[in-house]
Amino acid sequence: MIQAQCHCGNIKLQLPKLTDTMTCCNCSICARYAALWGYYLQPEVEISVGEYGSRQYCRGDREILFHCCNQCGCVTHYSAIDVSPTSRVAVNYRMLEPQLIKELTIRYFDGADTFKAVEKVQFTGLL
C-alpha cells in the first residue's frame, strides 16, 4: 500500500499502487490547484480524515467534489458526488513523496478547450 497525505497529516489516502501515468489538467480549477491526478475506482482508495476535518468544493457541472484539509488547506483528492463502486476518485499525487512519482509519465489534458489528452512527457519534479 502507498500512503498519500496532506501537509499536516490530517487527511490520509491509502492507495493499492501507483498508476502508470498522472494527469496535469489546464481547466480553470486544476490549473489553480496545480494538482497531478492519479485515478482510481472508489473502492480502491481508503480515505481517513482526522480531527481537523475536511471541506469540499463543488464546481461547475455539479458532478465532482474537491476535498481539502481544514487545517493545512491542501487539496488531497476529488470524488464523484454520486458515489458508487464504479465512480472514480482522483488522488492529488502532489500529496505523495516526490521520489515516488519522479519516474511517472505526465499525461497533459486540455480541460480548458478541447477536453482531450494532448501529450505525455516524463516528470521532472518541477511543474
Rank of each mutant, 00 (worst) to 15 (best):
T114R: 06
S28W: 00
I81Q: 11
D61R: 07
P98F: 05
G73Y: 04
F115E: 15
T23H: 01
E46H: 08
R94C: 13
S28L: 02
S87T: 15
N10H: 10
S79W: 00
R32L: 15
S28V: 05
K17T: 13
L126Y: 04
G125V: 09
G50Q: 10
I101E: 11
D61C: 11
A31M: 09
L96D: 04
Q56E: 13
C68M: 13
A34N: 11
C25P: 03
Y93V: 03
L100M: 15
A35G: 14
L127K: 12
S54E: 14
A117R: 06
P98Y: 03
N26Q: 08
A117C: 07
E44C: 11
C72K: 03
G50K: 09
T21K: 07
R62W: 10
V118P: 08
G111R: 02
N10M: 11
M22S: 02
Y40N: 04
A112G: 12
G73S: 02
G125E: 13
C74S: 15
E46K: 14
Y33P: 02
V83N: 04
T86E: 08
Q71L: 14
L126T: 13
A4F: 05
F115S: 15
Y108Q: 13
Q99W: 01
G125N: 11
A90V: 12
A4N: 12
C74G: 14
A80Y: 08
I64G: 00
Q71V: 03
A80I: 10
V49W: 01
R62P: 12
E97K: 02
T86W: 00
E97T: 03
R94K: 13
Q3S: 09
H67K: 08
Y57K: 12
Q122L: 07
E103Q: 13
A90E: 08
K116A: 12
Y40C: 07
C24E: 11
S48I: 14
F66H: 15
Q71D: 12
E63V: 09
Y93S: 05
Y40F: 09
N70I: 01
I2G: 08
A35D: 15
Q5D: 11
R59V: 08
R88P: 01
Q99A: 11
T21Y: 00
Y78V: 14
L15V: 12
C27T: 05
Q71F: 13
I101T: 15
I29G: 00
I29V: 15
H7I: 01
L15T: 10
D20M: 10
R62D: 15
